[in-house]
């Protein structure tokens, strides 16, 4: 009995990820003790905050059976609209920044949901289209002027500087960004929605089998709208967090990174075909990719190795799971793995 519990624990993708993360951290720590400095750890947490927000939205979409490549575009457009509005109104308030950005994100998400539901489009193609529409509309109607730290609203710069804890390190002081608070809250909220609410379970049901969901009397429109508006709202939060973290805002950045976000979510065990995925897995997926990106320098490799290792980790971890399924299928005389 106990044996099978342990075996089941190891069969879970999360466990594999945790082992990879710990093993890699120990390895880096031995190679370069600088890894265990507060400044490194704070940097990693700061660096993963934004991607994790997008990853949570991407996770919800993926569980519902979709793939959203517009998440970065929604974040950039929402953040930019929010900052420009504040600048235009001359109001410098962090709460307003979040409100505008989230509202914008939810609206763009609703647009995604409407397009996908109304025309029954493959989500990848639909969001590829909306990604371009969102960025294109922003560039045309608002512009793409770079917002430097000099003209950035002071409240956002303050948010970026804000620290939960400060630690003295060799004369200087490093702080843990306050931005991890909204991220932690949203991780918990997302977990709660997915696992403890009817709408969350409906997302799983829809991603598990669309026809069954319809036959069960599920209102697919409502579920889909929730999925894309929620993902949009998370991207809206990300827009402001991103501005605060960089203390400047380049509206032509970020878009293009959405595949890394999807990779992190898939790495976390979510299935591209829907119905399967966990918040914990996504957190670990993002953590691994961020840790890797920020520590290669510490072990003496140039940052150009980033992509290479991210690719290897994705293939290995997803490959292990797939190989297991294949072996199980062979036992049942099924010779093709339907992913």
């Amino acid at each position: 009995m106990k044996n099978t519990t342990i075996k089941n624990l190891f069969a879970r993708q999360e466990m594999i990820l945790l082992l990879i993360l710990v093993a890699y951290s120990v390895f880096v720590g031995i190679m370069n003790p600088a890894f265990f400095r507060a400044s490194t750890i704070f940097d990693i947490l700061k660096g993963s905050a934004g991607p994790l927000l997008l990853a949570l939205g991407t996770l919800v979409v993926m569980i519902s059976g979709g793939v959203d490549v517009s998440s970065t575009a929604v974040a950039i457009v929402s953040g930019y609209v929010s900052i420009r509005t504040m600048m235009a109104l001359g109001i410098d308030n962090v709460v307003l920044a979040f409100m505008i950005s989230i509202l914008m994100g939810v609206l763009l998400g609703a647009f995604n949901g409407l397009v996908i539901h109304r025309f029954e489009l493959p989500t990848l193609i639909a969001t590829l289209g909306t990604q371009n529409i969102f960025v294109g509309a922003m560039a045309t109607f608002i512009g793409t002027t770079f917002i430097s730290s000099r003209i950035m609203p002071e409240s956002l710069v303050e948010l970026g500087r804000g620290a939960l804890v400060r630690v003295e390190v060799g004369g200087g002081e490093v702080g843990l960004t306050v931005n991890i608070i909204p991220v932690i809250v949203l991780v918990i909220v997302t977990w709660f929605i997915l696992n403890r609410t009817m709408v969350g379970r409906s997302v799983f049901a829809l991603g598990s089998d669309k026809l069954s969901a319809r036959r069960a009397g599920l209102n697919l429109f409502r579920v889909r709208m929730f999925v894309y508006m929620y993902a949009g709202g998370l991207a809206g939060v990300m827009g402001v967090v991103y501005a605060a973290n960089t203390r400047s805002f380049n509206p032509l950045s970020l878009v293009g990174d959405e595949l890394n976000v999807i990779a992190a979510v898939v790495l976390g065990g979510a299935r591209l075909t829907g119905g399967v995925g966990t918040v914990l897995g996504t957190v670990l997926g993002v953590a691994i990719i961020t840790v890797l990106q920020q520590t290669l320098v510490l072990i003496g490799l140039s940052s150009s190795w980033n992509q290479f290792f991210v690719g290897v980790i994705i293939l290995v971890s997803v490959g292990v799971t797939s190989y297991r399924t294949q072996k199980a299928n062979r036992k049942n005389l099924t010779f093709i793995t339907v992913q």
Partner: peptide, 16 residues
């Protein structure tokens, strides 16, 4: 059968 393959037995029975 119109079940949800990724959900648990309990949830499949109770969902509707």
């Amino acid at each position: 059968l119109a079940l949800f393959p990724n959900l648990s037995v309990a949830e499949n029975i109770a969902f509707i």
